[in-house]
Write a protein that binds this DNA or RNA. Structure first.
Lengths: 253, 253
DNA sequence: CTAAGCTGTGTGGTCAGACCACACAGCGCA
DNA sequence: TGCGCTGTGTGGTCTGACCACACAGCTTAG
Protein backbone atom coordinates (compact mmCIF):
# COMPACT_ATOMS: atom_id res chain seq x y z
CA UNK A 1 0.00 0.00 0.00
CA UNK A 2 2.02 2.94 -1.26
CA UNK A 3 1.46 6.40 0.12
CA UNK A 4 0.94 8.97 -2.61
CA UNK A 5 3.90 11.27 -2.17
CA UNK A 6 2.70 13.79 -4.64
CA UNK A 7 1.64 17.09 -3.29
CA UNK A 8 -2.04 17.80 -3.25
CA UNK A 9 -1.95 20.26 -6.14
CA UNK A 10 0.09 17.80 -8.17
CA UNK A 11 -2.63 15.20 -7.72
CA UNK A 12 -5.13 17.66 -9.16
CA UNK A 13 -2.87 18.60 -12.05
CA UNK A 14 -2.17 14.99 -12.92
CA UNK A 15 -5.86 14.15 -12.76
CA UNK A 16 -6.75 16.89 -15.21
CA UNK A 17 -3.86 16.00 -17.51
CA UNK A 18 -4.97 12.40 -17.52
CA UNK A 19 -8.51 13.40 -18.43
CA UNK A 20 -7.11 15.45 -21.30
CA UNK A 21 -4.98 12.59 -22.53
CA UNK A 22 -7.87 10.14 -22.39
CA UNK A 23 -10.12 12.57 -24.22
CA UNK A 24 -12.48 12.90 -21.27
CA UNK A 25 -11.74 16.62 -21.38
CA UNK A 26 -11.13 18.73 -24.42
CA UNK A 27 -11.15 22.44 -25.31
CA UNK A 28 -14.55 23.97 -24.62
CA UNK A 29 -15.35 21.55 -21.80
CA UNK A 30 -15.95 22.81 -18.30
CA UNK A 31 -14.16 21.40 -15.31
CA UNK A 32 -16.18 20.47 -12.24
CA UNK A 33 -16.35 23.31 -9.74
CA UNK A 34 -13.45 23.76 -7.37
CA UNK A 35 -15.45 22.50 -4.40
CA UNK A 36 -16.55 19.41 -6.30
CA UNK A 37 -13.05 18.67 -7.56
CA UNK A 38 -11.69 19.05 -4.04
CA UNK A 39 -14.19 16.56 -2.67
CA UNK A 40 -13.76 14.14 -5.56
CA UNK A 41 -9.98 14.11 -5.25
CA UNK A 42 -9.88 14.26 -1.46
CA UNK A 43 -7.88 17.49 -1.28
CA UNK A 44 -8.57 21.01 -0.07
CA UNK A 45 -10.04 23.68 -2.27
CA UNK A 46 -6.84 25.71 -2.01
CA UNK A 47 -4.90 22.87 -3.57
CA UNK A 48 -7.37 22.71 -6.43
CA UNK A 49 -6.95 26.42 -6.94
CA UNK A 50 -3.17 26.15 -7.03
CA UNK A 51 -3.36 23.55 -9.77
CA UNK A 52 -5.92 25.59 -11.70
CA UNK A 53 -3.67 28.61 -11.48
CA UNK A 54 -0.82 26.69 -13.03
CA UNK A 55 -3.08 25.48 -15.82
CA UNK A 56 -4.38 28.99 -16.34
CA UNK A 57 -0.93 30.49 -16.82
CA UNK A 58 0.08 27.65 -19.14
CA UNK A 59 -2.90 28.40 -21.36
CA UNK A 60 -4.94 25.31 -20.55
CA UNK A 61 -7.93 26.84 -18.71
CA UNK A 62 -9.78 30.11 -18.53
CA UNK A 63 -11.84 30.91 -15.43
CA UNK A 64 -15.09 32.82 -15.17
CA UNK A 65 -17.04 33.88 -12.10
CA UNK A 66 -20.79 33.38 -12.14
CA UNK A 67 -23.08 30.54 -13.00
CA UNK A 68 -24.41 28.98 -16.14
CA UNK A 69 -22.52 27.41 -19.01
CA UNK A 70 -19.79 30.01 -19.20
CA UNK A 71 -18.93 29.91 -15.51
CA UNK A 72 -16.08 28.04 -13.95
CA UNK A 73 -12.86 26.73 -15.41
CA UNK A 74 -13.15 26.08 -19.13
CA UNK A 75 -10.54 24.06 -20.99
CA UNK A 76 -8.72 26.03 -23.66
CA UNK A 77 -5.56 25.35 -25.62
CA UNK A 78 -3.76 28.64 -26.01
CA UNK A 79 -0.05 28.09 -25.54
CA UNK A 80 1.11 31.57 -26.51
CA UNK A 81 0.65 33.22 -23.13
CA UNK A 82 2.28 30.40 -21.25
CA UNK A 83 5.22 30.31 -23.59
CA UNK A 84 5.61 34.05 -23.24
CA UNK A 85 5.44 33.93 -19.46
CA UNK A 86 7.94 31.10 -19.28
CA UNK A 87 10.44 32.73 -21.57
CA UNK A 88 10.00 36.19 -20.14
CA UNK A 89 10.53 34.95 -16.61
CA UNK A 90 13.49 32.80 -17.57
CA UNK A 91 15.13 35.78 -19.24
CA UNK A 92 14.44 37.83 -16.11
CA UNK A 93 15.95 35.11 -13.93
CA UNK A 94 18.92 34.79 -16.26
CA UNK A 95 18.10 31.22 -17.19
CA UNK A 96 17.79 32.22 -20.83
CA UNK A 97 20.53 34.51 -22.11
CA UNK A 98 19.21 37.13 -24.51
CA UNK A 99 21.75 36.03 -27.08
CA UNK A 100 20.30 32.52 -27.01
CA UNK A 101 16.82 33.92 -27.55
CA UNK A 102 18.04 35.78 -30.59
CA UNK A 103 19.82 32.78 -32.02
CA UNK A 104 16.79 30.58 -31.53
CA UNK A 105 14.69 33.14 -33.31
CA UNK A 106 17.12 33.03 -36.19
CA UNK A 107 16.83 29.25 -36.40
CA UNK A 108 13.04 29.21 -36.31
CA UNK A 109 12.32 32.19 -38.49
CA UNK A 110 14.74 31.27 -41.23
CA UNK A 111 13.19 27.80 -41.25
CA UNK A 112 9.68 29.26 -41.50
CA UNK A 113 10.61 31.47 -44.45
CA UNK A 114 12.37 28.64 -46.24
CA UNK A 115 9.43 26.32 -45.66
CA UNK A 116 6.96 28.85 -47.03
CA UNK A 117 9.12 29.30 -50.13
CA UNK A 118 9.29 25.56 -50.51
CA UNK A 119 5.53 25.32 -50.27
CA UNK A 120 5.25 27.90 -53.04
CA UNK A 121 7.76 25.89 -55.04
CA UNK A 122 5.76 22.68 -54.57
CA UNK A 123 2.57 24.42 -55.58
CA UNK A 124 4.29 25.84 -58.65
CA UNK A 125 5.68 22.49 -59.68
CA UNK A 126 2.27 20.90 -59.43
CA UNK A 127 0.50 23.80 -61.04
CA UNK A 128 2.78 26.18 -62.91
CA UNK A 129 -0.15 28.41 -63.79
CA UNK A 130 -0.45 30.84 -60.92
CA UNK A 131 -4.18 31.31 -61.54
CA UNK A 132 -5.05 27.65 -61.59
CA UNK A 133 -7.99 26.94 -59.24
CA UNK A 134 -6.22 23.82 -57.96
CA UNK A 135 -3.08 25.63 -57.04
CA UNK A 136 -2.66 25.87 -53.27
CA UNK A 137 -0.04 28.38 -52.28
CA UNK A 138 0.39 29.25 -48.65
CA UNK A 139 -1.95 32.05 -47.69
CA UNK A 140 0.17 35.14 -47.25
CA UNK A 141 -2.73 37.57 -47.22
CA UNK A 142 -2.32 38.51 -43.61
CA UNK A 143 1.40 39.07 -44.11
CA UNK A 144 0.70 41.48 -46.94
CA UNK A 145 -1.90 43.34 -44.89
CA UNK A 146 0.58 43.86 -42.11
CA UNK A 147 3.26 45.11 -44.49
CA UNK A 148 0.78 47.57 -45.90
CA UNK A 149 -0.15 48.68 -42.38
CA UNK A 150 3.51 49.27 -41.63
CA UNK A 151 3.68 51.69 -44.53
CA UNK A 152 1.20 54.04 -42.84
CA UNK A 153 2.75 57.45 -42.14
CA UNK A 154 3.12 58.70 -38.60
CA UNK A 155 3.41 55.34 -36.82
CA UNK A 156 5.04 55.57 -33.42
CA UNK A 157 8.00 53.33 -32.78
CA UNK A 158 5.88 51.14 -30.54
CA UNK A 159 3.18 50.85 -33.16
CA UNK A 160 5.76 49.98 -35.76
CA UNK A 161 7.38 47.36 -33.55
CA UNK A 162 4.02 45.80 -32.77
CA UNK A 163 3.22 45.51 -36.47
CA UNK A 164 6.71 44.19 -37.10
CA UNK A 165 6.18 41.48 -34.50
CA UNK A 166 2.80 40.69 -35.98
CA UNK A 167 4.32 40.37 -39.45
CA UNK A 168 6.92 37.91 -38.29
CA UNK A 169 4.29 35.93 -36.45
CA UNK A 170 2.04 35.94 -39.49
CA UNK A 171 4.74 34.13 -41.44
CA UNK A 172 4.80 31.43 -38.79
CA UNK A 173 1.03 31.27 -38.85
CA UNK A 174 1.06 30.91 -42.63
CA UNK A 175 3.33 27.92 -42.07
CA UNK A 176 0.67 26.41 -39.85
CA UNK A 177 2.97 24.96 -37.21
CA UNK A 178 1.35 25.76 -33.85
CA UNK A 179 4.46 24.90 -31.89
CA UNK A 180 6.60 27.29 -33.89
CA UNK A 181 3.96 30.01 -33.65
CA UNK A 182 3.81 29.77 -29.86
CA UNK A 183 7.56 29.49 -29.50
CA UNK A 184 8.19 32.47 -31.70
CA UNK A 185 5.59 34.51 -29.87
CA UNK A 186 7.27 33.61 -26.63
CA UNK A 187 10.73 34.44 -27.89
CA UNK A 188 9.59 37.78 -29.17
CA UNK A 189 7.78 38.68 -25.95
CA UNK A 190 10.69 37.61 -23.80
CA UNK A 191 12.94 40.30 -25.15
CA UNK A 192 10.35 42.89 -26.04
CA UNK A 193 11.66 45.34 -23.48
CA UNK A 194 15.18 45.00 -24.78
CA UNK A 195 14.02 45.50 -28.35
CA UNK A 196 12.14 48.62 -27.39
CA UNK A 197 15.08 50.00 -25.46
CA UNK A 198 17.33 49.24 -28.42
CA UNK A 199 15.48 51.75 -30.54
CA UNK A 200 17.08 54.53 -28.54
CA UNK A 201 20.50 53.36 -29.70
CA UNK A 202 19.70 53.73 -33.39
CA UNK A 203 21.34 56.49 -35.33
CA UNK A 204 18.14 57.13 -37.25
CA UNK A 205 14.83 55.43 -36.52
CA UNK A 206 13.51 56.71 -39.83
CA UNK A 207 16.33 55.13 -41.83
CA UNK A 208 16.10 51.90 -39.90
CA UNK A 209 12.36 51.54 -40.18
CA UNK A 210 12.56 52.25 -43.93
CA UNK A 211 15.19 49.56 -44.24
CA UNK A 212 13.19 47.10 -42.16
CA UNK A 213 10.13 47.64 -44.33
CA UNK A 214 12.13 47.13 -47.48
CA UNK A 215 13.62 43.96 -46.05
CA UNK A 216 10.17 42.66 -45.16
CA UNK A 217 9.12 43.22 -48.76
CA UNK A 218 12.22 41.40 -49.92
CA UNK A 219 11.50 38.44 -47.68
CA UNK A 220 7.95 38.16 -48.89
CA UNK A 221 9.09 38.49 -52.49
CA UNK A 222 11.61 35.68 -52.06
CA UNK A 223 8.90 33.46 -50.57
CA UNK A 224 6.51 34.23 -53.41
CA UNK A 225 9.30 33.62 -55.89
CA UNK A 226 9.71 30.10 -54.46
CA UNK A 227 13.29 30.79 -53.40
CA UNK A 228 13.91 28.95 -50.10
CA UNK A 229 17.62 29.77 -49.96
CA UNK A 230 16.99 33.43 -50.65
CA UNK A 231 14.20 33.67 -48.11
CA UNK A 232 16.37 31.97 -45.51
CA UNK A 233 19.24 34.37 -46.08
CA UNK A 234 17.10 37.47 -46.14
CA UNK A 235 15.40 36.59 -42.85
CA UNK A 236 18.73 35.83 -41.28
CA UNK A 237 20.22 39.12 -42.40
CA UNK A 238 17.08 41.00 -41.41
CA UNK A 239 16.94 39.73 -37.85
CA UNK A 240 20.63 39.70 -37.11
CA UNK A 241 21.05 43.09 -38.74
CA UNK A 242 18.46 44.69 -36.49
CA UNK A 243 19.90 43.16 -33.37
CA UNK A 244 23.40 44.17 -34.32
CA UNK A 245 22.27 47.70 -35.02
CA UNK A 246 20.58 47.99 -31.64
CA UNK A 247 23.52 46.17 -30.06
CA UNK A 248 21.30 43.46 -28.75
CA UNK A 249 23.54 40.79 -30.20
CA UNK A 250 24.61 38.54 -31.78
CA UNK A 251 26.64 40.22 -34.51
CA UNK A 252 25.98 38.91 -38.00
CA UNK A 253 27.97 35.88 -39.16
CA UNK B 1 -6.80 56.96 -8.29
CA UNK B 2 -6.88 53.78 -10.34
CA UNK B 3 -8.02 50.54 -8.81
CA UNK B 4 -5.59 47.70 -9.42
CA UNK B 5 -7.62 45.28 -11.50
CA UNK B 6 -5.06 42.57 -11.38
CA UNK B 7 -5.89 39.53 -9.42
CA UNK B 8 -4.11 39.09 -6.15
CA UNK B 9 -1.84 36.31 -7.38
CA UNK B 10 -0.96 38.36 -10.44
CA UNK B 11 0.22 41.18 -8.20
CA UNK B 12 2.55 38.74 -6.46
CA UNK B 13 3.82 37.32 -9.73
CA UNK B 14 4.46 40.75 -11.19
CA UNK B 15 6.25 41.86 -8.04
CA UNK B 16 8.61 38.91 -8.17
CA UNK B 17 9.19 39.32 -11.91
CA UNK B 18 10.02 42.96 -11.39
CA UNK B 19 12.52 42.10 -8.67
CA UNK B 20 14.14 39.63 -11.06
CA UNK B 21 14.32 42.16 -13.85
CA UNK B 22 15.83 44.79 -11.57
CA UNK B 23 18.38 42.32 -10.26
CA UNK B 24 17.02 42.51 -6.73
CA UNK B 25 16.47 38.78 -6.97
CA UNK B 26 18.61 36.27 -8.77
CA UNK B 27 19.14 32.48 -8.73
CA UNK B 28 20.17 31.31 -5.28
CA UNK B 29 18.32 34.08 -3.48
CA UNK B 30 15.52 33.30 -1.08
CA UNK B 31 12.14 34.94 -1.30
CA UNK B 32 10.60 36.36 1.85
CA UNK B 33 8.33 33.86 3.60
CA UNK B 34 4.79 33.51 2.33
CA UNK B 35 3.33 35.24 5.34
CA UNK B 36 5.73 38.15 5.01
CA UNK B 37 5.10 38.50 1.30
CA UNK B 38 1.35 38.43 1.91
CA UNK B 39 1.60 41.24 4.43
CA UNK B 40 4.05 43.26 2.35
CA UNK B 41 1.87 43.06 -0.75
CA UNK B 42 -1.46 43.36 1.06
CA UNK B 43 -2.84 40.05 -0.18
CA UNK B 44 -3.77 36.76 1.41
CA UNK B 45 -1.30 33.96 1.90
CA UNK B 46 -3.28 31.74 -0.48
CA UNK B 47 -2.74 34.24 -3.25
CA UNK B 48 0.99 34.23 -2.56
CA UNK B 49 0.95 30.45 -2.75
CA UNK B 50 -0.87 30.47 -6.07
CA UNK B 51 1.76 32.72 -7.57
CA UNK B 52 4.57 30.66 -6.10
CA UNK B 53 3.06 27.52 -7.55
CA UNK B 54 3.08 29.06 -10.99
CA UNK B 55 6.70 30.06 -10.59
CA UNK B 56 7.55 26.62 -9.31
CA UNK B 57 6.12 24.83 -12.32
CA UNK B 58 7.80 27.29 -14.69
CA UNK B 59 11.16 26.49 -13.13
CA UNK B 60 11.72 29.79 -11.34
CA UNK B 61 11.54 28.70 -7.67
CA UNK B 62 12.11 25.61 -5.61
CA UNK B 63 10.43 25.34 -2.21
CA UNK B 64 11.72 23.71 0.94
CA UNK B 65 9.98 23.16 4.26
CA UNK B 66 11.97 23.91 7.42
CA UNK B 67 14.04 26.77 8.60
CA UNK B 68 17.51 28.05 8.02
CA UNK B 69 19.14 29.16 4.80
CA UNK B 70 17.75 26.37 2.64
CA UNK B 71 14.15 26.83 3.73
CA UNK B 72 11.48 28.66 1.83
CA UNK B 73 11.21 29.55 -1.82
CA UNK B 74 14.59 29.78 -3.50
CA UNK B 75 15.01 31.36 -6.91
CA UNK B 76 16.26 28.97 -9.56
CA UNK B 77 16.38 29.18 -13.34
CA UNK B 78 15.59 25.76 -14.68
CA UNK B 79 13.35 26.09 -17.69
CA UNK B 80 13.36 22.46 -18.76
CA UNK B 81 10.58 21.26 -16.49
CA UNK B 82 8.33 24.17 -17.29
CA UNK B 83 8.85 23.77 -20.99
CA UNK B 84 8.09 20.08 -20.68
CA UNK B 85 4.94 20.66 -18.67
CA UNK B 86 3.70 23.32 -21.08
CA UNK B 87 4.30 21.25 -24.15
CA UNK B 88 3.05 18.01 -22.67
CA UNK B 89 -0.17 19.64 -21.52
CA UNK B 90 -0.70 21.46 -24.81
CA UNK B 91 -0.29 18.20 -26.68
CA UNK B 92 -2.77 16.58 -24.29
CA UNK B 93 -5.24 19.44 -24.83
CA UNK B 94 -4.72 19.24 -28.58
CA UNK B 95 -3.24 22.73 -28.76
CA UNK B 96 -0.03 21.31 -30.19
CA UNK B 97 -0.46 18.70 -32.90
CA UNK B 98 2.09 15.91 -32.63
CA UNK B 99 3.10 16.51 -36.23
CA UNK B 100 4.02 20.09 -35.36
CA UNK B 101 6.14 18.88 -32.47
CA UNK B 102 8.02 16.58 -34.80
CA UNK B 103 8.55 19.27 -37.42
CA UNK B 104 9.82 21.69 -34.82
CA UNK B 105 12.26 19.09 -33.58
CA UNK B 106 13.51 18.70 -37.13
CA UNK B 107 14.09 22.43 -37.43
CA UNK B 108 15.94 22.74 -34.13
CA UNK B 109 17.98 19.59 -34.23
CA UNK B 110 19.19 20.01 -37.78
CA UNK B 111 20.24 23.55 -36.87
CA UNK B 112 22.11 22.30 -33.81
CA UNK B 113 24.03 19.71 -35.80
CA UNK B 114 24.88 22.18 -38.54
CA UNK B 115 26.03 24.74 -36.01
CA UNK B 116 28.27 22.24 -34.26
CA UNK B 117 29.82 21.28 -37.59
CA UNK B 118 30.33 24.93 -38.40
CA UNK B 119 32.04 25.45 -35.06
CA UNK B 120 34.39 22.59 -35.87
CA UNK B 121 34.98 24.16 -39.26
CA UNK B 122 35.81 27.52 -37.70
CA UNK B 123 38.17 25.91 -35.26
CA UNK B 124 39.84 24.01 -38.06
CA UNK B 125 40.26 27.12 -40.17
CA UNK B 126 41.88 28.93 -37.29
CA UNK B 127 43.98 25.96 -36.22
CA UNK B 128 44.25 23.23 -38.82
CA UNK B 129 46.34 21.13 -36.48
CA UNK B 130 43.85 19.08 -34.51
CA UNK B 131 46.26 18.80 -31.58
CA UNK B 132 47.00 22.48 -31.29
CA UNK B 133 46.48 23.67 -27.66
CA UNK B 134 44.72 26.80 -28.96
CA UNK B 135 42.20 24.88 -30.98
CA UNK B 136 38.71 25.09 -29.42
CA UNK B 137 36.36 22.55 -30.88
CA UNK B 138 32.96 22.11 -29.36
CA UNK B 139 33.11 19.61 -26.53
CA UNK B 140 31.45 16.46 -27.78
CA UNK B 141 32.73 14.26 -24.98
CA UNK B 142 29.33 13.73 -23.43
CA UNK B 143 27.85 12.85 -26.81
CA UNK B 144 30.49 10.18 -27.31
CA UNK B 145 29.90 8.77 -23.85
CA UNK B 146 26.22 8.41 -24.54
CA UNK B 147 26.83 6.71 -27.87
CA UNK B 148 29.14 4.27 -26.14
CA UNK B 149 26.49 3.66 -23.47
CA UNK B 150 23.96 2.91 -26.16
CA UNK B 151 26.21 0.13 -27.46
CA UNK B 152 25.83 -1.81 -24.20
CA UNK B 153 24.23 -5.20 -24.78
CA UNK B 154 20.90 -6.03 -23.21
CA UNK B 155 19.44 -2.52 -22.97
CA UNK B 156 15.68 -2.45 -22.66
CA UNK B 157 13.79 -0.37 -25.15
CA UNK B 158 13.07 2.22 -22.49
CA UNK B 159 16.72 2.38 -21.50
CA UNK B 160 17.72 2.78 -25.10
CA UNK B 161 15.17 5.50 -25.72
CA UNK B 162 16.29 7.38 -22.63
CA UNK B 163 19.91 7.27 -23.81
CA UNK B 164 18.79 8.27 -27.28
CA UNK B 165 16.98 11.29 -25.87
CA UNK B 166 20.03 12.15 -23.79
CA UNK B 167 22.28 11.94 -26.84
CA UNK B 168 20.13 14.33 -28.82
CA UNK B 169 20.01 16.69 -25.88
CA UNK B 170 23.77 16.49 -25.43
CA UNK B 171 24.20 17.84 -28.95
CA UNK B 172 22.08 20.83 -28.01
CA UNK B 173 24.04 21.24 -24.81
CA UNK B 174 27.31 21.13 -26.74
CA UNK B 175 25.90 24.02 -28.78
CA UNK B 176 25.41 25.94 -25.58
CA UNK B 177 22.09 27.57 -26.44
CA UNK B 178 19.95 27.30 -23.28
CA UNK B 179 16.76 28.14 -25.10
CA UNK B 180 17.24 25.40 -27.64
CA UNK B 181 18.17 22.91 -24.92
CA UNK B 182 15.00 23.62 -22.94
CA UNK B 183 12.82 23.69 -26.03
CA UNK B 184 14.17 20.42 -27.28
CA UNK B 185 13.78 18.81 -23.90
CA UNK B 186 10.19 19.97 -23.84
CA UNK B 187 9.48 18.75 -27.35
CA UNK B 188 10.92 15.36 -26.60
CA UNK B 189 9.01 14.99 -23.35
CA UNK B 190 5.76 16.10 -24.91
CA UNK B 191 5.59 13.13 -27.20
CA UNK B 192 7.50 10.63 -25.11
CA UNK B 193 4.47 8.42 -24.66
CA UNK B 194 3.84 8.35 -28.38
CA UNK B 195 7.46 7.51 -29.07
CA UNK B 196 7.38 4.68 -26.61
CA UNK B 197 4.13 3.33 -28.02
CA UNK B 198 5.60 3.57 -31.51
CA UNK B 199 8.20 0.96 -30.68
CA UNK B 200 5.46 -1.68 -30.74
CA UNK B 201 4.84 -0.88 -34.38
CA UNK B 202 8.39 -1.65 -35.47
CA UNK B 203 9.03 -4.74 -37.52
CA UNK B 204 12.28 -5.37 -35.64
CA UNK B 205 13.42 -3.37 -32.64
CA UNK B 206 16.85 -4.95 -33.00
CA UNK B 207 17.25 -3.82 -36.60
CA UNK B 208 15.94 -0.37 -35.82
CA UNK B 209 18.10 0.22 -32.80
CA UNK B 210 21.15 -0.94 -34.74
CA UNK B 211 20.27 1.51 -37.45
CA UNK B 212 19.69 4.31 -35.01
CA UNK B 213 23.05 3.75 -33.39
CA UNK B 214 24.78 3.73 -36.74
CA UNK B 215 23.01 6.92 -37.69
CA UNK B 216 24.09 8.57 -34.44
CA UNK B 217 27.69 7.67 -35.24
CA UNK B 218 27.23 9.09 -38.71
CA UNK B 219 25.87 12.35 -37.35
CA UNK B 220 28.73 12.72 -34.91
CA UNK B 221 31.24 11.90 -37.65
CA UNK B 222 29.78 14.57 -39.93
CA UNK B 223 30.03 17.11 -37.14
CA UNK B 224 33.62 16.18 -36.38
CA UNK B 225 34.40 16.28 -40.11
CA UNK B 226 33.19 19.92 -40.14
CA UNK B 227 30.45 19.12 -42.61
CA UNK B 228 27.41 21.29 -41.75
CA UNK B 229 25.35 20.24 -44.75
CA UNK B 230 26.02 16.57 -44.14
CA UNK B 231 25.23 16.85 -40.46
CA UNK B 232 22.00 18.69 -41.22
CA UNK B 233 20.87 16.04 -43.70
CA UNK B 234 21.80 13.12 -41.50
CA UNK B 235 19.88 14.48 -38.53
CA UNK B 236 16.89 15.20 -40.70
CA UNK B 237 16.88 11.72 -42.15
CA UNK B 238 17.50 10.18 -38.72
CA UNK B 239 14.58 11.87 -37.00
CA UNK B 240 12.09 11.73 -39.82
CA UNK B 241 13.06 8.15 -40.57
CA UNK B 242 12.30 7.02 -37.03
CA UNK B 243 9.00 8.82 -36.91
CA UNK B 244 7.98 7.45 -40.27
CA UNK B 245 8.93 3.96 -39.22
CA UNK B 246 6.84 4.19 -36.06
CA UNK B 247 4.14 5.96 -38.03
CA UNK B 248 4.31 8.98 -35.81
CA UNK B 249 4.62 11.28 -38.79
CA UNK B 250 5.63 13.22 -40.75
CA UNK B 251 6.87 11.11 -43.63
CA UNK B 252 10.30 12.04 -44.97
CA UNK B 253 10.49 14.77 -47.61
C1' DC C 1 -49.33 37.32 -21.82
C1' DT C 2 -44.99 39.61 -21.36
C1' DA C 3 -41.49 42.02 -19.06
C1' DA C 4 -39.21 43.37 -15.00
C1' DG C 5 -37.67 42.45 -10.51
C1' DC C 6 -36.47 39.41 -6.86
C1' DT C 7 -34.56 35.28 -4.91
C1' DG C 8 -31.84 31.26 -4.78
C1' DT C 9 -27.95 28.73 -6.33
C1' DG C 10 -23.50 27.67 -7.73
C1' DT C 11 -19.35 29.75 -9.58
C1' DG C 12 -14.57 31.61 -8.85
C1' DG C 13 -11.82 35.06 -5.87
C1' DT C 14 -9.99 36.20 -1.62
C1' DC C 15 -8.72 36.25 3.03
C1' DA C 16 -8.05 34.44 7.74
C1' DG C 17 -7.11 30.86 10.77
C1' DA C 18 -5.78 26.40 12.47
C1' DC C 19 -2.76 22.76 12.42
C1' DC C 20 0.95 19.83 10.68
C1' DA C 21 5.77 18.31 9.55
C1' DC C 22 10.10 19.99 8.88
C1' DA C 23 14.61 22.03 9.76
C1' DC C 24 17.45 24.85 12.08
C1' DA C 25 19.43 27.59 15.94
C1' DG C 26 20.20 28.26 20.53
C1' DC C 27 20.41 26.82 25.22
C1' DG C 28 21.08 23.82 29.09
C1' DC C 29 22.79 19.71 31.15
C1' DA C 30 25.68 15.66 31.69
C1' DT D 1 32.02 18.86 24.10
C1' DG D 2 28.07 16.46 22.61
C1' DC D 3 23.32 15.45 22.99
C1' DG D 4 18.65 16.53 23.77
C1' DC D 5 15.05 19.80 24.22
C1' DT D 6 12.66 23.94 23.08
C1' DG D 7 11.43 27.71 20.31
C1' DT D 8 10.91 29.73 15.90
C1' DG D 9 9.95 30.29 11.23
C1' DT D 10 9.31 27.72 7.02
C1' DG D 11 6.12 25.62 3.50
C1' DG D 12 1.94 22.36 3.02
C1' DT D 13 -2.71 21.59 3.69
C1' DC D 14 -7.34 22.05 4.96
C1' DT D 15 -11.45 24.61 6.54
C1' DG D 16 -14.55 28.27 6.79
C1' DA D 17 -16.38 32.73 5.90
C1' DC D 18 -17.56 36.15 2.86
C1' DC D 19 -17.71 38.59 -1.53
C1' DA D 20 -19.08 39.62 -6.42
C1' DC D 21 -20.82 37.57 -10.27
C1' DA D 22 -24.00 35.36 -13.48
C1' DC D 23 -27.65 32.68 -14.42
C1' DA D 24 -32.22 30.35 -13.89
C1' DG D 25 -36.60 30.27 -12.14
C1' DC D 26 -40.51 32.33 -10.07
C1' DT D 27 -43.69 36.04 -9.01
C1' DT D 28 -45.93 40.31 -9.73
C1' DA D 29 -47.49 44.22 -12.25
C1' DG D 30 -48.86 46.37 -16.44
Amino acid sequence: MTVDERRAWEIVLAHIENDLLLGRLKPGDRLPGERTLATDLGVGRSSVREAIRVLEVLGLVRTNVGSGPTAGAIIVALPGGGMSALMRLQVAAQGFPVADIVKTRLVLETAVAAELAEAVLSAALLRPDRQHPDRHDPDLGRCVQLLDAMDAPGLTEDEFLALDAAFHLSLAEACGNQVVVATMAGLRTAIEGYVRAGVARLASWSDTSDRLRAEHRGILAAIEAADPTGAHSLVHAHISGYYAETQLSPAPH
